[in-house]
């Protein structure tokens, strides 16, 4: 039994805001975690409610996104969707890390400067 993973997109990055995202990456993986299908969906309009509807309609199991408001976060959790939010980085990197079991909420994947 496979599962669907949705990554909110802004260009090639994870969208910084869930509610403002107008494009998503939908990836289907099989039971062994191998990617079997990848779809880019451009949304007619951005909005957290519509995006939640899409997530539930498509029976998405995991959402990887940037900032999400508490209300929508808890709604998706209540609907048994795993939400990995606060992710800052390239969408491809985030997906790879998730499939490798190595992506936590709040992960910052961009290279960082060291503070003097």
């Amino acid at each position: 039994m496979g599962k669907q993973i949705l990554v909110t997109l802004y260009r090639d990055e994870v969208a910084p805001r869930f509610d403002l995202c107008s494009e998503v990456l939908l990836v289907t993986v099989d039971a062994t975690g191998h990617e079997v299908r990848r779809q880019d969906l451009v949304l007619a309009s951005s909005g957290a409610d519509d995006l939640c509807d899409l997530i539930l309609d498509r029976e998405v199991a995991v959402v990887i996104t940037g900032a999400v408001e508490e209300e929508h976060y808890h709604y998706l959790r209540w609907k048994r969707v795993t939400v990995i939010d606060g992710v800052a980085g390239l969408a491809g990197d985030a997906l790879t890390r998730y499939l490798g079991g190595n992506l936590d909420p709040g992960a910052i994947l961009f290279p960082r400067l060291s503070h003097a």
Binding site: P16, A88, I108, F110, R112, L113, S114, H115
Partner: peptide, 9 residues
Amino acid sequence: EVAGVPCRH
């Protein structure tokens, strides 16, 4: 923790 991160994030 965010030094070097694009400000949109």
